[in-house]
């Protein structure tokens, strides 16, 4: 499956009817793995219909790779079975934790950025990638706290994890921007030493501003101009680095628009990157 330059949309329930009736020309869909880690019913029936027509990539939210708790191999077995079903070219999840003390928090929670923690996560990521027998990509978070114990900036930590693991990146451009506002760094600093050859996929999304000026990664609005400009820069740099145009996906999880409008928002990516590449 060659997704070079592809532009995709997150597969969401409100859009099923339109997709099945009109079979729009979409490069690929991304599914949230956990939504399809079930035993039967409409989720799997709808997935089969999508797979008949479209490439699908898998993205998860519950691997909790940064948790102090050990990997859940029952979860990984189900994830691998789903990957075989979808034929996804890679599996991704977030550089975060979501469980502790046996409890699941259903959120994407950050860790302090230390070398020791990076090495710990990298070892787990290597195990995951070996087990899945597929490229495994970690996505950078939008985060709302920072830790006194951090020894390095987020981008250095992210790079250390994926390089030690021999794993990959799913670079969320909106998350870079949201975190840059929330933590006061320059978003271009995030891109400076990025190992572009490890970036398998890009994410774009909308966000919301809170009353105090901080940003929330809400995935319920169009992509903001500042994020599009950052995306343009990401694409220019990936081309200069020799890896070409990285597959891009629009995430939209709430306050849904009709599918054609959502797809049109995603396809803006072609305008933003091609204007730069041809310059």
């Amino acid at each position: 499956m060659d997704l070079t330059g592809a532009v995709g949309v997150g597969l969401r329930v409100p859009h099923y009817r339109y997709i099945f009736e009109h079979e729009p020309d979409v490069d690929f869909f991304e599914i949230i793995s956990e939504n399809f880690m079930v035993d039967g019913g409409p989720p799997l029936e709808n997935l089969e219909r999508v797979l008949d027509r479209y490439p699908v990539v898998q993205h998860g939210v519950s691997l909790s790779i940064a948790s102090a708790e050990p990997l859940d191999f029952d979860y990984l077995k189900r994830l691998k079975a789903l990957a075989r079903r979808t034929g996804t070219p890679w599996v991704s999840d977030h550089l975060c934790w979501s469980q502790a003390g046996g409890r699941h928090y259903h959120d994407l929670l950050p860790v302090p950025y230390t070398s020791e923690i990076a090495s710990f996560i990298a070892e787990k990521a290597r195990i995951v990638q070996d087990f899945l027998e597929l490229p495994f990509a970690l996505e950078n978070l939008s985060s709302y706290v920072s830790f006194a114990a951090s020894e390095m900036p987020e981008w250095a930590f992210y790079r250390e994890v994926v390089e030690q693991a021999g794993a990959h990146m799913l670079l969320d451009v909106n998350n870079i921007y949201v975190s840059s506002v929330n933590h006061g760094f320059e978003p271009l600093d995030y891109l400076a030493d990025l190992p572009w050859e490890r970036v398998l996929q890009l994410h774009l999304a909308g966000h919301s501003e809170q009353a105090d000026g901080s940003l929330l990664d809400t995935h319920d609005k169009p992509v903001k101009d500042a994020v599009w400009e950052l995306y343009r820069e990401v694409c220019a740099r990936s081309v200069r680095a020799g890896v070409g145009l990285i597959p891009t996906l629009l995430e939209w999880d709430d306050d849904h628009l009709p599918f054609p409008e959502t797809h049109a928002e995603a396809l803006l990516a072609r305008q933003y990157r091609e204007a730069d590449v041809t310059r």
């Binding site: 948790s67 102090a68 050990p70 929670l109 302090p112 923690i117 710990f120």
Partner: peptide, 12 residues
């Protein structure tokens, strides 16, 4: 499995 860094479990 790899051992978590000291203090990580308590922090989380």
């Amino acid at each position: 499995p790899p051992e978590p860094p000291e203090g990580l479990a308590a922090l989380q």
